[in-house]
Design a protein around this nucleic acid. Structure first.
Lengths: 186, 186
DNA sequence: AATGCCATGTAACCGGTTACATGATTTA
DNA sequence: TAAATCATGTAACCGGTTACATGGCATT
C-alpha cells in the first residue's frame, strides 16, 4: 500500500493535478516508485473519497478540465503514521538474475547482447543521478530535508553503481563460456 | 512472465513435486524470485496443460498424493528462448526509500527503530549468503555452471552489502536530525 | 473543419497475496 | 482415534498493466 502515500508525499511537496503528478512520477519519484496516469487518477479518487485530500476549489470539475489537489490534515497524519510504521521488506524479484540461473542449465546463447544493453541502460541512469546530485546537492550546504533527499539519491547512485559493476563481471564471465548448453544435470 | 521459467529452471535442476518446489523457492531460488505454494500449483497446472512439463507416471494422481514433474523438450526449448530474449528492466519499487522521502516532509519520528530492524535483517541475509558462498564455492574450482551460479550469488552478496552500508548512513543521518516535522514547504 | 495535444477517465486483464478447504500419512 | 503434519488444491481480493474512450483547447 505505498502508492497512496507516494501521492500524498508528492502533493505535500506541491499541490498538483493528475497529469502533473504523472509527470513528477516519471521524473524523480518514479526512480523508486513508478506509476501510470491510470493508477494515479484511480488513487486520487480514493484519497478524495477518504477525506485525505481535496480538489482545489478554484477550478470547475469537468472532464478535460484540469483539477488540482491538496493534502488535508487527515492526509498528512496518515502519511506520518505510515512513515513511522514498521514494515517488512518485500522479497526481491529480479528476472535478470533468474535468467543467469537458467543459463547455467540451458546455456548462455543469446544472453550477451541483452546484458550489454542492460549495462548501457544502467550507465545512463547512473549518469542521470550523478547529474541530479551535482545540480541539486552541491557540497557544503545540507538542511534537514536536503540531508534525507540526498540520502535517497545516494541509494539510487550506489545501486546503479553496483549494477554496472556486476554486469561488467557478468559479461566477462559469459564471454569466455561456451555458447551451447552445458553438460547434463549432476 | 518469470514464474513459469523459474519453475522450469528448478525442475531441470531436479524433478520435484509442488511442495518440494515450494521449499526450494523458500531457499535458493526465492532469494531473487519468491513464490508461494498456491502460485506454484497453479503454474504447474498451466505448464502441464501447455505440454511443457509432465507428471512422472510412477505416482498415482490423487489429492494428498505426491505428484512429481519433469520438463519436456518443449519446456527446455521455451526456457532457452526466454533466457535469450531481450527484456526491459522493470522499474524499481522500494517503499523504504519512499518513506525516507516522506520523512523529509512529515518528519522522521518513529523511523529509526525500523531502519535498525531492516539493517539487522540485511546483515542476517548477508551472513547467510556468505555462508553459502563458503560452502558451495570454495576458491579455485569453478566449472561453467558454477561460474554462473557464483555470479548470481555474488549479486546477492553485493546487494546486501550495499543495503547494510546505506542503512548505516541513513541511521547516522536520522539520529542527528530533529524528530518532528521540518519547516513547511518552500 | 480537421488535426493534434492536453487532461481525465473506464474496462479488462494478469500476476501475486491471503484465507480457507480437503485428503493422506504419521505419531501420540 | 485424535492430533499433527504432509501435500494438493480453490476462491476472493488487490494492485499494476494495457488498451481504449471522451471532452476541451489550440493551431492550421
Amino acid at each position: 500500500m505505498s502508492l497512496p502515500h507516494a501521492i500524498l508525499t508528492a502533493l505535500l511537496e506541491k499541490p498538483s493535478s493528475g497529469l502533473e503528478l504523472t509527470r513528477r512520477f516519471d521524473r524523480s519519484i518514479g526512480y523508486f516508485w513508478s506509476a501510470t496516469h491510470q493508477q494515479i487518477y484511480r488513487e486520487l479518487g480514493k484519497l478524495e473519497a477518504d477525506g485525505l485530500i481535496r480538489a482545489l476549489p478554484s477550478e470547475q470539475p469537468a472532464r478535460g478540465q484540469k483539477k488540482s489537489y491538496e493534502v488535508l490534515a487527515a492526509g498528512r497524519a496518515e502519511l506520518a503514521r505510515w512513515t513511522a510504521a514498521s514494515q517488512d521488506p518485500k522479497p526481491h524479484r529480479d528476472p535478470l538474475l533468474l535468467r543467469l540461473r537458467a543459463a547455467a542449465v540451458v546455456g548462455t546463447a543469446g544472453l550477451e547482447d541483452d546484458l550489454r544493453r542492460h549495462l548501457e541502460l544502467h550507465e545512463k541512469q547512473l549518469a542521470e543521478y550523478r547529474e541530479i546530485e551535482r545540480r541539486d546537492f552541491p557540497p557544503g550546504r545540507d538542511s534537514a530535508e536536503d540531508r534525507l533527499r540526498h540520502l535517497v539519491l545516494r541509494a539510487g547512485i550506489d545501486l546503479e553503481t553496483f549494477w554496472t559493476q556486476w554486469l561488467r563481471h557478468a559479461l566477462a564471465d559469459v564471454a569466455e563460456l561456451p555458447d551451447g548448453e552445458p553438460a547434463g544435470p549432476a
